[in-house]
């Protein structure tokens, strides 16, 4: 699913290449910390490489594998605060709050 240069992240592509924030947030809440930690540990060291690779293509004409990679980076962003800060899937002290992102740029 991913470009050859980032093929090492392939094991996470099936679960985390998600095109919308709503899907990524739902996946985060449905995941264990161990799952998110494993994804983070693999993807975080590669994020600058991924950004440099993606910047070789026009944003609005990304080939399919690059588009998947972009969505995977978005998911890394989504799991980063649970891993780095909260140590749990939900934001600490967020009670029952939810914000639905209903509009976002594509891709």
């Amino acid at each position: 699913m991913l470009p050859e240069e980032l093929a090492d992240l392939e094991p996470f592509a099936g679960k985390w290449c998600l095109p919308t924030e709503a899907a990524r947030y739902a996946q985060r809440l449905a995941s264990t910390m161990a799952e998110m930690q494993a994804f983070y540990d693999a993807a975080f060291p590669r994020v600058r490489d991924a950004m440099a690779h993606l910047d070789q293509f026009p944003l609005r004409e990304l080939p399919e594998r690059e588009l998947n990679l972009l969505h995977l980076v978005y998911s890394l962003v989504m799991v980063s605060l649970p891993v780095e800060v909260w140590r749990q899937p939900r934001v600490i002290d967020s009670g029952t709050a939810y914000f639905d992102r209903y509009l976002e740029p594509v891709p």
């Binding site: 924030e21 950004m51 440099a52 993606l54 910047d55 293509f57 944003l59 990304l62 690059e66 972009l70 980076v73 978005y74 962003v77 989504m78 605060l81 934001v91 967020s94 914000f99 992102r101 976002e104 740029p105 891709p107």
Partner: peptide, 17 residues
């Protein structure tokens, strides 16, 4: 560029939290 879009995503996610 994709990296600009990713930076916007970081801000949009962190701010929401």
């Amino acid at each position: 560029s994709a990296s600009e879009r990713i930076r916007h995503e970081v801000t949009a996610v962190v701010s929401k939290e």
